[in-house]
């Protein structure tokens, strides 16, 4: 029944709507192409780069970009291009894992808070308020400093500081629908509260949460890079965009611009890509909120 031809038709309709929106919006199409490139680098990066990202070459230190070294070389003679490409995997992985973590915990907590109200709402609200009482990046610094300087803790810290955002969006969307006619109708049809939360609330909130995910992906990348820029989480010589910019920062004043520029650009491009996709998804999900 639920897999009737209608559902298939609906999926097709959604896809064709998505295609319509994308075809009318070349920027979003461009963003998806960029995403493809990023994913390609993340998956195949380490195998396709021309040089070993960790191998130093004392004969070729601080070389400006050339045909041999597209993005130049750093103080240890490592190929910046290879390092930038190889870093994609780590940067994306940190963002993906932290967003997945916060989506699961924050989203569900928010739905529970908005739909059931009462104590659940108060507890989730109190946790979110406490986290929000800190400037978020500062809290992330404190968490990583306390838990220990590892990549896993960067993921955890990034998830924690995003918790209020997810919990609040999910809570608002769930509580708006709590008294909606279709939820009351589901009660009259004998659905249990849990079942209503899962079949009537969750699927209707999902698209909005997807937009949220895409927008926070960019923020998560920025946050992780910022932490490693000040020396938290990722340790050298591991290639990571934030730390590479930090390593190149000292050379900027002496004119070796390529060390910081290329990883910084890669970082910017990745964040830009997720933000564009987020905006594009929002257009598909909620045309009224176009800005």
């Amino acid at each position: 029944m639920s897999r009737s031809p209608g559902t298939g038709a609906a999926i097709l309709a959604t896809l064709s709507h998505a295609r319509y929106v994308i075809s009318g919006n070349p920027v979003t199409a461009f963003a998806f192409m960029l995403l493809g490139l990023l994913l390609f680098c993340a998956v195949f990066g380490p195998w396709i780069v021309p040089f070993d990202p960790l191998a130093s070459d004392t004969a070729a230190t601080l070389k400006a970009p050339s045909l041999r070294h597209w993005f130049g070389t750093d103080a240890l003679g490592r190929d910046v291009f290879s390092r930038v490409v190889a870093a994609t995997r780590l940067d994306l992985a940190i963002a993906v894992f932290s967003v997945a973590l916060v989506f699961a915990f924050g989203g569900l907590a928010g739905i529970a808070a908005g739909f059931f109200g009462g104590w659940t709402d108060r507890i989730v609200g109190r946790i979110a308020d406490t986290i929000m009482a800190f400037p978020l990046f500062v809290l992330a610094m404190g968490i990583v400093a306390a838990l220990g300087n590892t990549v896993t803790n960067i993921v955890i810290a990034t998830a924690i500081i995003n918790f209020p955002l997810y919990a609040r969006v999910a809570r608002t969307e769930a509580s708006v629908r709590r008294e909606a006619g279709f939820v009351m109708a589901a009660r009259l049809s004998g659905n249990s509260e849990l079942r209503i939360a899962l079949t009537s609330i969750l699927p209707n909130i999902l698209p909005i949460m997807m937009v949220q995910m895409s927008l926070t992906m960019g923020y998560a990348i920025l946050n992780a890079a910022g932490l490693s820029f000040i020396g938290l989480g990722v340790r050298p010589p591991m290639p990571e965009w934030g730390i590479m910019v930090a390593e190149g920062a000292g050379s900027i004043i002496s004119g070796e611009w390529w060390l910081a520029l290329f990883p910084g650009l890669a970082l910017m491009l990745a964040v830009f890509c997720f933000n564009l996709i987020g905006d594009g998804l929002r257009d598909i999900v909620d045309p009224q909120r176009r800005t």
């Binding site: 890079a225 934030g242 920062a249 900027i252 004043i253 910081a260 520029l261 964040v271 830009f272």
Partner: peptide, 26 residues
Amino acid sequence: CRAIVTAGVSLPVFFTGLLLVYVFYF
């Protein structure tokens, strides 16, 4: 405005700072 907004949220703040240093100082 829309271009500035979209590009602006994508700029890592430490990267912007370094770029400005490179251009205006170096």
